[in-house]
Simulated assay, not measured.
Amino acid sequence: MTPDQVKLVQHSFESVAPIADAAADMFYARLFEIAPELRPLFPEDMREQKSKLMRMLGVAVRNLHQLDQVLPAVKDLGARHVAYGVTDAHYAPVGAALLHTLARGLGDAWTPELEAAWTETYMAVAGVMQNAAAEAAAKAGATA
């Protein structure tokens, strides 16, 4: 990610943070619409899950300019997702739901440049999570 992309993502997230509850609702509604097979991976009561999503997203976005500060948490999150049944195939619909939510939430501020910056951000974070998940799965397989 370029420094300009980092600034774009961070600045745009400032507009999302005040509507965090609505954004989380939009995100999960879209995710379960495009990937209904993912619904069983989540609790029936989604309140805590929605809060966790927005907190983690906020931490990641605020620290994009200093990724070394957030990488351990992102890696841990990726490794934990193995136990939840998350696979590599699940990352694409999550990314699509995130971009859809941001586009709706940001309205006219959602430009091709901002979409590219958010796409790059998601791909980077998802890549770290997927690598950590693969390492965790390999370790689990080695000890089984």
Score class of each variant (00 low, 15 high):
residue 2 T to F: 13
residue 4 D to S: 12
residue 5 Q to S: 09
residue 7 K to S: 09
residue 7 K to D: 10
residue 8 L to R: 04
residue 8 L to V: 07
residue 12 S to N: 06
residue 13 F to I: 05
residue 15 S to H: 15
residue 15 S to R: 11
residue 17 A to Q: 15
residue 18 P to I: 08
residue 18 P to A: 10
residue 20 A to M: 10
residue 20 A to W: 10
residue 20 A to E: 13
residue 20 A to R: 11
residue 22 A to Y: 07
residue 22 A to W: 07
residue 23 A to L: 08
residue 23 A to S: 11
residue 23 A to R: 02
residue 25 D to T: 15
residue 26 M to T: 13
residue 26 M to C: 13
residue 29 A to S: 15
residue 29 A to K: 15
residue 29 A to T: 14
residue 30 R to H: 15
residue 30 R to I: 13
residue 31 L to R: 05
residue 32 F to R: 04
residue 32 F to S: 02
residue 33 E to V: 00
residue 37 E to D: 10
residue 37 E to H: 06
residue 38 L to N: 05
residue 39 R to H: 04
residue 39 R to I: 00
residue 40 P to G: 03
residue 41 L to P: 02
residue 42 F to C: 00
residue 42 F to R: 00
residue 42 F to P: 01
residue 46 M to R: 00
residue 46 M to W: 00
residue 47 R to S: 01
residue 49 Q to G: 00
residue 49 Q to I: 00
residue 49 Q to A: 00
residue 50 K to Y: 01
residue 51 S to C: 02
residue 52 K to I: 03
residue 54 M to C: 04
residue 54 M to A: 03
residue 55 R to G: 13
residue 56 M to K: 08
residue 56 M to Q: 10
residue 58 G to H: 09
residue 59 V to T: 12
residue 59 V to Y: 15
residue 60 A to F: 13
residue 62 R to S: 03
residue 63 N to Y: 03
residue 63 N to D: 08
residue 64 L to V: 09
residue 64 L to Y: 08
residue 65 H to W: 08
residue 65 H to S: 14
residue 65 H to I: 01
residue 66 Q to P: 03
residue 67 L to M: 11
residue 67 L to A: 10
residue 69 Q to A: 09
residue 69 Q to D: 08
residue 69 Q to W: 01
residue 70 V to I: 14
residue 71 L to A: 06
residue 71 L to I: 15
residue 73 A to G: 12
residue 73 A to R: 10
residue 74 V to R: 04
residue 74 V to S: 06
residue 76 D to E: 12
residue 76 D to T: 13
residue 76 D to W: 13
residue 76 D to G: 11
residue 77 L to Y: 03
residue 79 A to Q: 06
residue 79 A to T: 04
residue 79 A to M: 08
residue 79 A to N: 07
residue 81 H to D: 02
residue 81 H to Y: 07
residue 81 H to A: 01
residue 81 H to W: 07
residue 82 V to A: 07
residue 82 V to G: 01
residue 83 A to P: 01
residue 83 A to S: 06
residue 85 G to C: 05
residue 85 G to M: 05
residue 86 V to R: 00
residue 86 V to W: 01
residue 88 D to C: 03
residue 94 V to S: 06
residue 95 G to A: 09
residue 95 G to Q: 08
residue 96 A to L: 12
residue 96 A to Q: 14
residue 97 A to S: 14
residue 98 L to W: 11
residue 99 L to Q: 11
residue 101 T to Y: 03
residue 101 T to L: 05
residue 101 T to G: 03
residue 103 A to D: 10
residue 108 D to W: 13
residue 108 D to L: 12
residue 114 L to Y: 13
residue 117 A to F: 15
residue 120 E to N: 14
residue 120 E to T: 15
residue 121 T to D: 10
residue 123 M to F: 11
residue 123 M to W: 11
residue 124 A to C: 12
residue 127 G to Q: 02
residue 127 G to P: 03
residue 128 V to P: 05
residue 130 Q to F: 02
residue 136 A to R: 10
residue 138 A to W: 03
residue 138 A to G: 09
residue 139 K to A: 14
residue 141 G to M: 06
residue 143 T to Y: 06
residue 144 A to S: 06
